[in-house]
Structures are given as C-alpha cells and as structure tokens.
Nucleic acid binder design. Structure first.
Lengths: 198, 198
DNA sequence: GTCGTTTCTTGCCATAAGACAAGTTTTGGT
DNA sequence: ACCAAAACTTGTCTTATGGCAAGAAACGAC
C-alpha cells in the first residue's frame, strides 16, 4: 500500500516524468511515518539527519549562535521535503535543530535506503535531484532577497510570503529569522500597523 | 585523451569510489575547454548556464539589486565546479553574472550531456550529487556564518578564509559581498591596520 | 481561578553603518 | 609620459537598529 500523499507529492513534483506504479511503490515503501507534538524535535543537533516529507504541520529550523541564542534559519510548512544536506549526504552530525511549531505528521527515510533507490530507480534519481536543486535554489533566493533591505522590508516580505507563520511561531523566533531583535520586531509591527491603518 | 586536471579533480573529490578509466574518460569527454580574459563573462544574466570546472583563475558571481548596484554573491577560486542550479537544472535564464577577475582556464559542459551521464554512469551520479550537496552546504555555511556578526568580523573572516581575493577583486566588489558600502569597508581597513600594528 | 513564568511592548540612550561630497591615489589609453 | 577616468579614502552628519530595563499581556500548571 503506497503512502497516498507522498506518492502524490512525488509524482506532482516532476510532471514531465510518468512514474510507473511499481517505481512509486518502491519509493514509498522506503519511507515510514512519524508524528510530532508541538515542541518535539524532528532532528537534534549532533544526530545524523534523515530525509523527511512533511505532510501536515509547521516546523522551524534553528541553530545556536556563539552567545547561545537560537537563530531561526527557516520555517517549513506542509507538503515539502526537508533534509540537512551536510548531515544527510555526508553522514555528519547535524548542526541544525528542527522542531515542531505545531502537531506534525509525515514520512521519513534514511540515506541507505534512498541511496539504493537513487542508483536503481531512474525516476527516483530525477526526483531526488529536483528536490535538492529546488531546495538549493530557494535557499539562495531567500538569502539573496534579504540583501540590501531594511528590517521593515524583510518583515513585509515575510508577511506576504508566509503570513501563517505569525500564527504559529513566537515573535522572538521570527525576529531571529529576520536578523533583528525581538525588540525591533515589536517596534516594526507597531509602526507597520499605524501605516496600514491610514 | 582525458583532461588530466579535470579527471584528477573528479577522482579526488570522491576518494571512496574507484573510478574506472572508461568512466573517467566518458565523463571528461563530455567537457570542452574555455578561456577567459579578465572582465570577460563565463555566464551572463538572461543566458542558460552550463556546468563549469575552473582549473585556474578567479571568478566573481554577482547580481544587480533593485537600484542597479552590483552585489557580489560569491568569489570562486581554482579547482572547483561552478553552476547556477536554477538555470542549469531547470533550463531557466540565469539571474547571475559570472565574470573573470583574472585570466581563467577551465572546462564546461551542458545539461544534456551530463544528464545522460547521470543516468548511465553510477560513478558520475555520485560525483554530481556530491558536488551539488557540497555547493549547497558551503553556501549555507557561508550564509549562516555571516549572521550576527559586525561588518568588521565579516571582514576579518574573509581575510582568513580568502586573503587572495584582496589582490584580485576591487574593494567595492568585496564591500558588496560583505554587505556594506565601499566607504565603510575603507574605514574598516583603516581601523584594522591600526589595531594590527599595536 | 490564581499565581508565576514567559512573551511581548515601550522608553531611553548608545552605536554601527549609510549618504553625500570632496579630496587623493591608481590605472589605463594614447 | 600625460591626462582622464576610475578606484579609494576621509569628513561630517543622519539614521536604523541594538542594549538594557521596566511594565503589560498572555499562557500554563496546579
């Protein structure tokens, strides 16, 4: 029995290729389900990270800076794959923490299983390559789009791109993602609501 | 006749795998040589980017911001592969400009040729995957390491990591890479030389 | 429902970096 | 070798954001 939502996600992410039922089955069978409650960790610093599909929920990826503050690197919402490339591909202890902001459900797999598929199944190769390329591209775009912007512009961008995150994440987490202090974010929000009122 | 330096680079970048001579040959034959003089472009915004190995020289990757200023995204030095993932993998016009800071020599190939190898040659698959993962990881590390640092710390880091760049790039190009104006970089350099004198 | 903890907001002051403009040095073309 | 253009430095003033501390609001455990 293939995992419906995962199978659908895989097929739909490379529409140019028609996946055979057998291939889809083989791929989905390499995955197992996971569940997380709010605040539980999908990946903790020091562990070897897997390959995750997030079916439902919100996650936050953060690291610690030199002073021990949490710095949010990314927010993840449903219907995407998640992996720490450094840890997953090179079997290194991760430096990242991926924590549930809400209840989450999804599927995960390991490097071993997916590496077999990578060599045995052309369709999976295409999928895997598309995923890493896509992740790389979006991280790059996200990073570049923050350049030469004021904190207020970065805030406005996030509001447009991912408004839901303000419902599920704390302001301190969002502030560190925007590269500012929670104090500054608080002021930006105040000034912003003045502006949008008039 | 395989391209010696490229063959050596490929083999040495995944030492766990012993490349057969035939595979190495097939891979190298997919590449052709290129030469650039200072200021010439390896890739221009709007074109479809290829897959490049830089054998010798220094390159700079930059984009234009909304005000038309050049923003340096990366500096590249010899013995590495270079590609714009968004353009190379998805055949989209690139938004990046890759320009020679010095005379450069290297080899390039196209998506078509390398995609064939990707599916036909397991060793090349490993290589290609290692390269994109490595690029992704270093871009991530580079980005993250700039967080919560002052301009002066970012400058000091670059001096340690890539001192040679100060010999080949203009200060304005380095300043935009560090996320500051050339004015500020000039002052940082002055203050820095006071400090290191005493 | 109450109390303690955590999160968020606000005020005041400090500081890193930018904007602009003028000067100096370096570079490159003829 | 000379001149013009480009690259770099410096001065003065402005501004965005941070640091710290106090208060207000929201949340969670019992």
């Amino acid at each position: 029995m293939p995992i419906e939502s995962l199978a659908h996600f895989i097929q739909q992410s490379i529409p140019q290729i028609r996946f055979s039922a057998a291939a889809l089955d083989r791929i989905c069978n390499a995955f197992e389900q996971y569940d997380l409650n709010e605040k539980e960790f999908l990946l903790k610093e020091g562990k070897i990270g897997g390959y995750y599909f997030l079916e439902e929920g919100f996650l936050r990826n953060f690291i610690y800076d030199s002073k021990g503050n949490e710095i949010t690197i990314s927010f993840y919402k449903a219907q995407r794959v998640i992996f720490d490339p450094s840890s997953f591909f090179f079997s290194k202890p991760s430096t990242e923490n991926i924590q549930a902001l809400t209840k989450c459900v999804g599927y995960f797999s390991t490097f071993e299983k997916l590496n077999d598929l990578f060599h045995s199944t052309p369709e999976f190769r295409e999928f895997a390559r598309a995923m890493i390329a896509k992740e790389f591209v979006s991280f790059k775009i996200e990073t570049i789009s923050k350049i030469n912007k004021t904190a207020e512009e970065r805030y406005a961008d996030l509001m447009i791109r991912n408004k839901e995150i303000f419902q599920v994440a704390q302001l301190k987490q969002i502030a560190s993602y925007l590269g500012i202090t929670d104090t500054s974010l608080s002021r930006i929000r105040r000034d912003f609501s003045y502006k949008t009122k008039n």
